[in-house]
């Protein structure tokens, strides 16, 4: 639904970087390589990287059924 606030494994705050990641990564709205974006944001452990890579926003999907 919404991006997790922290990494499940290590507890680093990852929610902070979600909007920047979404705007820049080519898998979302941007045109950059997601790996480079994560390096640039300082998300360097793979446990934290998967939090952003594997995330899917679902608020738009569920909001009509409120």
């Amino acid at each position: 639904m919404m991006v997790p606030v922290r990494c499940f494994s290590c507890g680093t705050v990852v929610g902070e970087h979600w909007e920047a990641f979404k705007a820049r990564a080519e898998t979302h709205d941007g045109d950059e390589d997601p790996a480079d974006v994560l390096d640039d944001l300082g998300v360097d452990r793979h446990c934290c990287r998967r939090m952003l890579i594997a995330h899917q926003d679902l608020v738009d999907v569920v909001s009509p059924y409120q």
């Binding site: 991006v3 606030v5 929610g15 970087h17 608020v59 909001s63």
Partner: peptide, 24 residues
């Protein structure tokens, strides 16, 4: 998270861009 207002000015969210919830 940055929208949180506290009664002690020294206490605030350490990161301000964490989305809590998207509102329609």
């Amino acid at each position: 998270s940055g929208d949180l207002v506290s009664n002690d000015p020294e206490v605030e969210a350490a990161d301000e861009n964490i989305p809590i919830i998207e509102l329609k």
